[in-house]
Simulated scan of single mutants.
Amino acid sequence: MLAVIWLSWKVKKSRNINATPPPGPCGLPLVGYLPFLGTHLHRKFTELGEVYGPIYKLWLGNKLCVVVSSPSLAKEVVRDNDTVFANRDTSIAARVITHDANDIGWCPYGAKWRKLRKIFVGKMMSNASLDACYTLRKREIKNTIRDVYSNRIGKAVDIGELSTATSINVVQNMLWGASFELGQKGTNLGVDLRKMLAELMVLLGTPNLSDIFPVLSWLDIQGIERKTKHILAWFEKILYSAIEQRTNAVNDEQQDFLQFLLELKGT
């Protein structure tokens, strides 16, 4: 039985390869190289790059993965031929946090992605938008300095936490024209946001058995889907609150990014 499964897996793998693949380590039937990766992927990939060169392949389950580990190849992938490599397999964690890949980071390249990019660059990151927020950024930095000077003399100051709170204020003002106080309330939100973002980055980067073996996805063995849904609910609570306040506002003439999205949704 195992021999039949192994043979069918090899046949399927050979049919999926349309060109000569790069060299790479041998794996085991069904699981590929997965048992040998370990927990420090960057170190393992570096070791394999020293053996097989700047580009090599390895099988994770029934998925063929190609690793590039040189600046010139990375430049060719992400810049010179970016549209060719734009589409990728979306992990379960990414699908959860982006509502089934409906964002600019994970949406497949095409008309929808170009529209999202046009909105993001034109309305959020254009030179005109950034120049218009110069006074806002300057004011928030002054508020941070004033808060430290007035309330935190003689106390330990977490610079990372403080800078995160300041950045949140700036981004919130750009998005929906509101910010939180830099006192205890603001600090707690900054701490929670840093914690949630750090946890989200770990979940997005953690190899998930449910991605490698989709038949096991309903089990959520590592709990990645459950944890990502918890983070999504936390983010949505903040966003929905801002949307509700804006839609319930009377004679609100703010023309920030949120107002633009609401008007776009209504057209």
Rank of each mutant, 00 (worst) to 15 (best):
P21I: 13
P22R: 04
P22D: 07
P23I: 08
G24V: 03
G24D: 08
G24L: 00
C26V: 05
C26S: 13
C26E: 07
L28A: 05
L28Q: 00
P29M: 13
P29A: 02
V31E: 05
L34E: 08
P35T: 06
P35I: 05
F36N: 07
F36K: 07
G38L: 09
H42P: 03
R43M: 11
K44N: 12
F45S: 01
T46W: 04
T46A: 09
T46C: 03
E47G: 08
L48D: 01
E50G: 14
V51E: 13
V51A: 08
Y52A: 06
G53W: 03
G53R: 08
I55R: 00
L58M: 11
L60M: 04
G61T: 01
G61P: 01
K63Q: 13
L64K: 10
L64M: 14
L64Q: 11
L64W: 09
V66A: 03
S69C: 13
P71Y: 05
P71T: 07
S72P: 00
L73E: 00
L73Y: 03
L73I: 08
K75L: 06
R79I: 08
R79F: 12
N81Q: 04
N81S: 05
N81D: 07
N81R: 10
D82P: 05
T83L: 13
V84A: 09
F85S: 10
A86K: 12
A86D: 11
N87E: 01
N87R: 02
R88I: 07
R88V: 00
T90W: 03
T90D: 10
S91M: 05
S91D: 09
I92S: 05
A93Y: 00
A94P: 05
R95E: 13
R95A: 13
I97N: 03
H99S: 15
H99Y: 13
H99P: 11
A101H: 12
N102F: 01
D103Y: 04
D103Q: 00
I104W: 00
I104L: 14
G105V: 09
C107V: 06
C107A: 09
C107F: 00
Y109G: 08
Y109I: 02
G110Q: 06
G110E: 06
A111Y: 09
A111R: 12
A111K: 14
W113L: 05
K115E: 14
L116P: 00
K118V: 04
F120D: 06
F120A: 14
M124F: 09
M124A: 14
M124G: 07
M125P: 03
N127E: 03
N127K: 11
S129A: 15
L130V: 15
L130T: 11
A132H: 04
C133L: 12
C133S: 15
Y134R: 14
Y134C: 09
L136M: 15
L136F: 06
K138I: 02
K138S: 10
I141Y: 11
I141P: 03
I141S: 07
K142C: 15
N143E: 13
I145F: 13
D147M: 15
Y149C: 15
S150R: 15
N151I: 05
N151G: 12
